[in-house]
């Protein structure tokens, strides 16, 4: 038995950030921003709007569209929780009026988090601990970007996705996961917790109350080129599925140049390589499920397709699986 992921809802913040707005602010041109990122539009959470607020809206919509579902577990994947403790998933259980016998798990992962969440859901479903899982992804990484950092502000975007995961009759999913913590500080949020708390200088210089994203873009790029192709090969091998049998490849929507380089390196045909980066930006943990949602809306993704999903990034961590959609 595999897992079924055929019910998704999304919620986007109302504020957008376009290339025109960035070009005006940074006195550059829109074509240059697009060339560097492959992105035209990003979404920004409002000042007092948290990741759980956005995830709540996506979940409320999903549950109203699928009434009567008994949720056994709620998994909330984010790098932007309400508190260090308690788990934000517990807060969401109450806000969503889910029964008190709902298990709640926070999953503090970013770009690879969707696949890690699927892996945990798979384990819960196949161990008999759950029949239906509400899986939520959302980050508000734009709140951690320095206002003068064009590279980061032109990439990142906020969005929430809510999904219902159940068992189905397709073959059991094989997962590939990995980590390389030696690159942990190539992409992290400085001044966000106990290891490197904020001091007065940090607060004065950044004005970022939740911490500041620090990214070594060159190393993150190299990490992805080094890690993703073998991960894809391992996933195919473990699943016993040939490369040509995959109907659609949906990778973490990191940035346009990286995705195109990976596609070329792995000889993935353009028509099988879905991206929605242009219209949504890099939404961290939500990027893969958001891409699944828009691919379905655009009728690129259809029932019965074999979809290889691959997440990679902050950690450094990575994960991939094949969904029988």
């Amino acid at each position: 038995m595999g897992l079924s992921l055929d019910k998704l809802s999304i919620h986007l913040p109302s504020q957008v950030l376009t290339n025109e707005m960035l070009a005006k602010e940074f006195k550059t041109d829109t074509a240059d921003i697009f060339k560097r990122t492959g992105i035209e539009t990003r979404y920004l959470s409002a000042k007092n709007e948290t990741a759980s607020d956005l995830a709540y809206q996506a979940a409320k919509k999903l549950l109203s569209e699928n009434p009567g579902k008994k949720i056994d577990f709620l998994i909330f994947c984010s790098d932007c929780f309400d508190y260090i403790a308690p788990a934000t998933s517990c807060i969401l259980q109450d806000r969503l009026s889910l029964p008190q016998n709902t298990g709640c798990i926070d999953l503090p992962y970013g770009c690879s988090g969707f696949v890690y969440g699927l892996g945990i859901a798979n384990g819960l479903l196949h161990s008999g601990m759950a029949e239906t899982i509400l899986f939520l992804t959302c980050d508000t990484s734009t709140k951690t970007l320095h206002p003068e950092n064009l590279e980061q502000r032109s990439l990142f975007s906020d969005a929430a996705v809510a999904m219902l995961i159940t068992k189905n009759n397709s073959p059991i999913n094989s997962f590939v996961f990995g980590s390389d913590g030696s690159g942990a500080l190539d992409l992290y949020i400085e001044g966000s917790a106990f290891r490197k708390p904020q001091d007065d200088n940090f607060k004065r210089e950044t004005g970022l109350p939740y911490g500041q994203m620090v990214m070594n873009g060159t190393n993150v790029f190299s990490f992805a080129l080094r890690t993703v192709p073998p991960m894809i090969n391992d996933t195919l091998k473990k699943s016993g599925i040939a490369f040509d049998e995959i109907d659609l490849f949906v990778f973490h929507q990191a940035n346009g140049f990286l995705l195109e380089t990976l596609r070329k390196k792995m000889n993935i045909p353009k028509e099988k390589f879905y991206t929605n980066l242009k219209d949504y930006g890099n939404t961290v943990a939500s990027s893969i499920p958001l891409a699944l949602y828009t691919a379905e809306q655009e009728k690129v993704l259809k029932k019965g397709m074999k979809v290889l999903v691959a997440g990679f990034g902050v950690g450094n961590s990575w994960g991939a699986t094949i969904i029988n959609y």
């Binding site: 060159t218 140049f257 990286l258």
Partner: peptide, 11 residues
């Protein structure tokens, strides 16, 4: 020259 050029070289 920009950081983008470094990525182009790596790619």
């Amino acid at each position: 020259w920009s950081s983008m050029h470094a990525l182009i070289i790596i790619a």
